[in-house]
Design a protein around this nucleic acid. Structure first.
Lengths: 192, 192, 192, 192
DNA sequence: TATGAATGAGCCTTCATTCAT
DNA sequence: AATGAATGAAGGCTCATTCAT
């Protein structure tokens, strides 16, 4: 097994265990075992558990950003772009429940709060740049309601996240048509 | 200090510490110290930490339900009732950040999932009955979009929760006018 | 409830709980509850748990001694006296399983060892005086084997205790005839 | 220190402390300290305290069984075999007071009762098989009194255990000749 | 005198991290 | 570089004992 392979195995094992059992239900020894490496080995790739958790988060965020860009085009009409981002995000969460569960755990923890604070205060080189750009455009062109960006974000992300959670927990079954209708409802919320 | 006093102190201390540091960042010894009681004293009022956590959650839920009923009237027009519930809830979260943070922690934990499952499946006389009732009415009268109830809930709760969190974290300042506008945006999302 | 009544209730409760669950399965609070008194009340009658345990032991020992004297007569033939003591003791243990279990727990614990040491070193004003007297006589008259007293005691007590335990644990059912035969077997062990 | 060394140290420390102070007078931390290992280390070798206690008991039982088989031969006359087993057992207890004290503690505890029940009811290939076999033979050949096996066991074990205890506590000094005489007295008890 | 709420030392166990191999 | 045995601090919980009422 080559070096990056080991790292990948560790990250994968951590994702699985934390997504399912939470940070405190995923001891380092268990992650190591699931990854097929020694417990000490993890510390060659990650300084400590916190670092592992944070780096894993950033990898997931990258995947989400990549998904959002997939098939996205600045040439398409505004509404279509909005619907694309919304349906893509919701679809991604539903089809990658581990990533979703992990992100949820992360946001809901000291890690998440610290991270979020760093991000919002500094220059957001985060993943949501496409969305941010689109929303800023929408506000400027008076397509969207005249709200601070954060509020528009929440009107958009809030329902998406809630629905993904309910789907993953099995409280509802979302098919392609329903996903589209839901995002169109979100559109109603933000559009002027 | 009389008997109910001590229980109150424990509950208050638990709320503060768990809201700020999460369940695992709030050891029983720390809760006891903050409450000004001995460590063993907590166990006179709560069988164990799980019970403390659950009872505290239910107390908070009661407060939220009470707030929602405050000034609510089935006589008022549908939209007005919707706006009342939305603004009241958002206002409550903003003005009781500890309660909000606690509820968030709770929902995002084994406790929360178990609780949620019990609630959604059984017909528990939970706190959201007013909202549920209103939404069912809205669907029946074709005022609201023809979505399953869960989806309507998420279109409503999702943004409210996200916004409360952002406000509490200081990413935004919501005043009374803004709160109203936000809930009206949610209304756009759910209304037919 | 008059003063001695309370003391009796405490002693009775302690006997029941310790016999069944051992010293560590019988917290003071539980004893108090079973006795129908406040937890602090126990400390009016017994300085601490150790004292309670020791005093209770001595009460039981008194009951055993009383049973042994019941129907005992120095006039009867030696062998008959031996059989009387043996059958009476075994019968007592079988019919008072709480007393028996308690005595067993007691002997098998720091209490028991300390107690035993005190007793053997000092002048045994203990309960076994009848037995001791009889055995000394038997040795002197060359009816019994020429063993130190302690050994004769063990040849006598050892089987009786083992058999009582097995009966109480349900591994065997001893009726009156069997009890007699057993003691006669013990007689074979000690008689010259 | 190699791996089995540490396990051995733990077992030895546990034996010493439990033999002297009982299960409750031997906290895991104390066992660890006496063994010269960290507290957590014990849990690498034993799942928990109960498992440690049970495994230690079984190790001791094995030693006892090994001692009983030492020099035992089915070819020798019945009485000689009986005397061999009796003297060997008593000698073993006397020369291994820690083992003896431990076994006593064990039998007198929830562990012991559960263990004993399993053993007597099921056909476990326990340690007493030699003794059991010999006694069954003796009953069948009408060499021993016609008692249920349990009773014969108690007539044999009872005195042996009592005498071992008294020797270890210093109430008596047993030399080789005395040991032999004692077992011959036990023989008188069980022989027809 | 009687109570039982309150206390806190002490117990068993877990787990992030280190380090000898 | 990789391992995993070893560590010990920290956590949840129990219970003998005290003391204000």
């Amino acid at each position: 097994m080559s070096k990056p392979d080991k790292r990948d195995e560790i990250v994968r094992a951590a994702l699985e265990l934390i997504a399912e059992h939470g940070f405190h239900g995923a001891p380092m020894a268990m992650i190591a075992e699931r990854a097929g490496v020694g417990a000490g080995t993890i510390y060659r790739y990650f300084e400590n558990k916190d670092v592992l958790i944070n780096e894993l988060y950033q990898e997931i965020e990258k995947r989400i950003v990549a998904a959002l860009h997939q098939g996205y085009s600045r040439e398409k009409p505004f509404r279509e772009r909005f619907v694309h981002l919304g349906t893509t995000l919701l679809r991604y969460f539903i089809s990658s429940p581990l990533d979703f569960r992990y992100v949820e755990q992360f946001h809901n923890s000291p890690f998440g709060v610290a991270f979020r604070r760093d991000k919002l205060l500094g220059d957001t080189t985060s993943g949501c740049d496409v969305i941010k750009e689109l929303f800023e455009l929408g506000v400027a062109q008076q397509i969207l309601k005249d709200f601070p960006l954060v509020i528009l974000f929440d009107l958009f992300f809030g329902p998406v996240v809630s629905l993904a959670r309910d789907h993953i927990l099995g409280f509802i079954q979302l098919d392609e048509a329903m996903i589209r209708h839901i995002i169109e409802a979100c559109w109603d919320a933000v559009k002027r």
